[in-house]
Amino acid sequence: MSELWRRFGRLGGGLVLATALLWALLLIVLPQLLMVELSFRPNLPAAARGGPEDVLSLANYAALWANPLHRAIFWQTIWSSLLVTLLALLVCYPVAFHLAQEARGTRALLLATALVIPFWVNEILRTFSWFLILARNGLVNRLLLGLGVIEEPLALGGVGAVMIGMVYAYVLFMIFPLYNALESLDRNQIEAARDLGASTWRIHWRVVIPHAKPGIAVGCVMTFMLAAGTFAVPQIMQSLPGGTNARWFTQIIYSYFFDGGDWNRGSAYAFALLLLCIVFVMATMRLFRVGLRDIAK
């Protein structure tokens, strides 16, 4: 702390410290704590708050556990998010590798620029573009009808459609961390391995992937977090024919806040989702042996 005074003086150092602490407290820590606290209390009208009924309990979490539909949606959110993460990793790895290690000069620049473009078209429009493809009047149905493969338009909605939308919306959050990690791999290491007679598979397994670990971890954490916490993608994809069964956990949370008006239950559900993400982040960090510093780059 004395370092802070030395750099900026009492006044400046105090200002820096106060600003950062206000951010940490008012924007991050206290809101989260209040949300957690709320989740352990019953939903009461404002007048009854702090009264004899306002006691801490696990009732809101028990309710999540007791509701088979909500439980099912929670599990479905987990496994679909895991699947989306895995798919995104598989799809992105070859592209990131090519971009980082094989492409050169203008070509590499062009490819990288091409990646940035869909990145900045916002999530909703990106999802909407797939919605248009899968819609009743969409491209797929039109093509199949035109080719005479089907007689009636197919109902393409469902969990699958949501996942397609998510992979599409989030691949780029996988590709850039991967790219950054692979980019720092010395090309000579690959040459050396090849020179020693290693096959392409072995080179990737023994040299490239170990090097890319932090990038893989970051990409997976980001993608999983986005997928588990998405609201937009399922919301849009649900409008597809046959899509109504594809409900997402975030939507239940939303309805507790804005339709049901039970903020306490909603907080419990939100905290459950947060815990899920924390567990995933921890597990990934452990699995890939990386620290928070690598993750938040």
């Binding site: 924007l27 809101p31 989260q32 209040l34 949300m35 709320l38 954490v221 977090m225 986005l226 588990a228 916490g229 609201f231 975030t250 949370i253 939303y254 806040f257 903020w263 909603g266 907080s267 939100a270 989702l273 947060l274 993400c277 982040v281 993750i295 938040a296």
Partner: peptide, 13 residues
């Protein structure tokens, strides 16, 4: 690393 919906919820609360 926190889902955006949760940031929104906790801010609102």
């Amino acid at each position: 690393l926190t889902p955006g919906v949760i940031l929104g919820i906790s801010t609102l609360i």
